[in-house]
Amino acid sequence: MIDAAAIAFQIVQSIFVAATAPLLLGWVNQCRCWLQNRSGPGVLQPYYVLGRLFHKEAVLAENASPLFWATPYILFGCMWLAGGIVPVLATDLPFAPAADIIALVGVFALARVFISLAALDIGTSFGGLGARREMLVGFLAEPAMLMTLFTAAFISGSTQLTTIVESLARREFAIYPSLAFAAVAFLMVLLAENARIPVDNPATHLELTMIHEAMILEYSARHLALIEWASAIKLYAYMTIGLALFVPWGIAQGGNWPALPFALAALALKLVVAGAGLALIETVSAKFRVFRAPEFLSTAFLLAVLGMLIHFLVGQ
């Protein structure tokens, strides 16, 4: 079942995801700058930021517990695992059967719980505020995400991302009403889970409106770098899950090296378009008040459930 070529492919994909995740973030930020009529720092800026943070001396609060410094590594490990499971370049990777879509949601939940706990560890008011809001977003986004994925699972008869992607890629091009609902719900979840506008503002400097940033205020240097890097991988993983579910064409089979260049090109094209689209959404919408976020996310949840019901009613 597991051969060397597939494992090599797996390692290549995992490293590829970790290495290119900041690039995607840079591209989204650059697009946003262009849309806002600014010149922008260039797509490589996230790498410079990471490099700078890794070189700095880490400062830890006096009363920080081991959980506080361990969290960035756990977070990074979780996201690395997620990046290895999602069919970014190829399906049927040796790691893929280790976790299906439900387990993937579980990985993200694990990361979220740890970062929220770390935020509460120092005992500052902003940390608690961020943790509470993050869990608020999380408990609504997680079921919505599961329901979206269940719609795809019902269509393909499997919760295995490999099987889902292969069965969705084989079908003829037609609009599935259930998948359309699921796609909208997924997009809303993606925005919320990755701390993007309209739920959270990744570039905010106002502490009272922060969610994600409020949780990591006490982190510095290498710990902060790992968290930022993990967030970049998370965005990458979410976008590639979305691409795999809703535009699955061009993904190679695991171990199929000749298909790799084509898969790479397809992925690059899709991510460039998706990243620009994300920047566009963030530019044309304004951030909600925190208490509008539950409405936004319950809409996503209801859309996802509707999509699932439509699948059963229409049979598509």
Partner: peptide, 16 residues
């Protein structure tokens, strides 16, 4: 249809 291997899961996170 579905599978889950928690050991691989744990080992990967711990190794990373």
């Amino acid at each position: 249809e579905a599978s889950y291997a928690p050991l691989i899961f744990l080992v990967t996170v711990l190794a990373v």
